[in-house]
Design a binder for these strands. Structure first.
Lengths: 344, 344
DNA sequence: TTGAAAGCGCTACCAA
DNA sequence: TTGGTAGCGCTTTCAA
């Protein structure tokens, strides 16, 4: 495989390599006639610019990284699509990293992205604080956080209004006639989950209600953990004194709660109303369909990509510029799982 | 950001750049003492090898590509995880491309991977024949196809035994007492789907049954298309003369079929048994749980990565070596959707 | 508007 | 076992 270089093109076109470079990158004015000669020669030879030589000179890879905890989670794959779409539009490549929720895998991925000299990274960390984030920043790579607050300074964040989401989910159940409402929290340290919880508390307080600790428990965002949480609630409280509604920190767990309830012969939504967050495909398809709060996930991915591109192009000084965080409004999607008291 | 180069390390360690290179790449024997000096210097300076310079010399990127039609499809995300895991184990980076099932997006992705000079590509094309594949091959990039047969020569394939899967799904329904069985086919030109269909025909023939054309229709692998296929079946045949069982070319459509049947007040599985393929998470969670045929998807991704690495390392001549395709056995996962005649 | 030439950081050949 | 050095393919300054 002999590589066709810029020299070959130059020779064939009867010009200098510099001119070829200028034509290809449109980096300086070139006489029309010359340009055409060069383009013809490049075409004829099937010339593909050597990315490495280019990158070596320009000190930029035109590659961006996206780190998510679970690529098979529909929420993240949608986010990725949004971001990837934007990057590709701008002719940048993307490396997607799946940390499988493991902190050390996260660390490894960060090192790989540094090795690849990516121009920027979008992160959705499993943890609130990754060492990796500072590593990235120290290497001069801009970082944008999505859907999670970070403890590291200088990282702009793209978020949904999770607190508002938690509030509207809870108010919805209140409005449907539930007077006692439980909450299944997400993993400790995940801001998305804790803010939804905060919204829940706020909604209750606004109506003069208290949070009953016995109705609150935790899961880890998986289906299975939702089902277990449901069982735990029944064990703790007894079948007789369950809350009428439960707000669950994400859809996957909410589906688990519904299945768990079903197994325990508790009817959803007749005697237990359930609301989740995310509006994943599954939520429309299960029985009863899940009421949920949705965020513009695709859009959020896109905006995150835009911010990252901005920062990357800003170069050196961009790090200093304070960027404000973006917060997206959420929307309640009403389905049957929240029709408390209704016999389907 | 002044970059720390191999020269800086060499100076600090009091050796030549060549020696530093040898230590870092373990490409030639170096005295223990020297190695330690070099490592210490590199550590102290926080040296990160310049990927581009390396790649420019070695003519290899250590990056691999994976092209799938839909990253949010659980089947593909599992496949990706399997492959990515292997690549990362071997210290290679991965670029994942989502073609969204569009042919031109596929083309664009191929061009991007060529631009990135990846060392190899795993492809799951939406179409049976992509121009992109030959482009890749022509650029000297090894290609491995997964889950799809290709028409292009010289591309090893990693596949599930889809014909066997189609046969066992059909036989299962036959054994459960269905004497008439329909089939919802996948998109034209997707070998996975057409082989499952072939297995279905074979199973019927083996029992001396014929395929009733009125019971066969097509979808495009989405939930919605499954639901529509169900409606079409009812329109074509009338409610009275539907088959007792339907084999559906993938799980997502099968779930659509179940929902469609439900909407038309046809009871699954009491009066209609349904079987799908893939065993995605959703299949366990819907009601009734879907009987399906599963393939070792994660494992397939891993093997595909291994084949790709082999080819990439083989270099020039590897293209010539005939590689045999790998076919993986599938397994019937029996759940309630196929319990024909049973009232749940 | 164009060309000549230096050099990005690294590897590998040749020599010692 | 180590060092010197050419050159991978490209961009960019300087000069014409």
């Amino acid at each position: 495989m002999e590589e066709v270089t810029i020299l070959d093109v130059a020779e064939k076109a009867g010009v200098s390599p510099s001119t070829v470079s200028r034509v290809i990158n449109e980096s300086a004015p070139v006489a029309n006639e010359t340009r055409e000669k060069v383009n013809a020669a490049a075409e004829a030879l099937g010339y593909t610019p050597n990315k490495f030589a280019h990158a070596l000179r320009k000190q930029t890879s035109n590659v961006f990284g996206i780190i998510v905890p679970d690529i098979s989670n529909p929420f993240f794959s949608t986010l990725i699509r949004g971001a990837e779409g934007k990057f590709h539009e701008e002719n940048r490549s993307v490396i997607i990293c799946d940390t499988k929720g493991e902190t050390d895998k996260e660390q490894i991925n960060v090192e790989m992205l540094i090795k690849e000299r990516v121009d920027g990274v979008i992160v959705t960390s499993a943890e609130r604080e990754i060492k990796g984030l500072s590593r990235l920043l120290d290497s001069g790579i801009p970082v944008i956080a999505v859907d999670r607050k970070t403890k590291v300074d200088g990282i702009p964040t793209v978020m949904a209004d999770n607190e508002g989401a938690g509030r509207s989910a809870t108010e919805h159940l209140l409005d449907r006639g539930c007077d006692e409402i439980g909450f299944i929290r997400g993993p400790a340290g995940v801001s998305t989950a804790s803010e939804r919880f905060k919204g829940y508390r706020m909604a209750l307080r606004n109506r003069g209600l208290n949070v009953d600790r016995a109705f609150v428990t935790r899961g880890d965002f998986t289906f299975e953990s939702g089902r277990e949480a449901m069982r735990r609630l029944v064990e703790t409280n007894g079948r007789g004194s369950l809350p009428g509604g439960i707000v669950v920190a994400n859809d996957l767990m909410a589906v688990g709660v519904i299945r768990g309830a079903e197994e325990l012969e508790i009817e959803v939504p007749t005697s237990l109303a359930v609301v989740g967050f995310d509006d994943i495909l599954l939520s429309r398809l299960i029985n009863p369909p899940l009421t949920t709060v949705s965020a513009p996930t695709y859009e959020m991915g896109k905006i995150a990509a835009e911010l990252t591109l901005d920062r990357a192009e800003g170069g050196e000084e961009a790090g200093e510029v304070e960027m404000e965080d973006r917060v997206f409004e959420t929307e309640l999607v009403e389905r049957e799982s929240s029709q408390y008291g209704v016999k389907l």
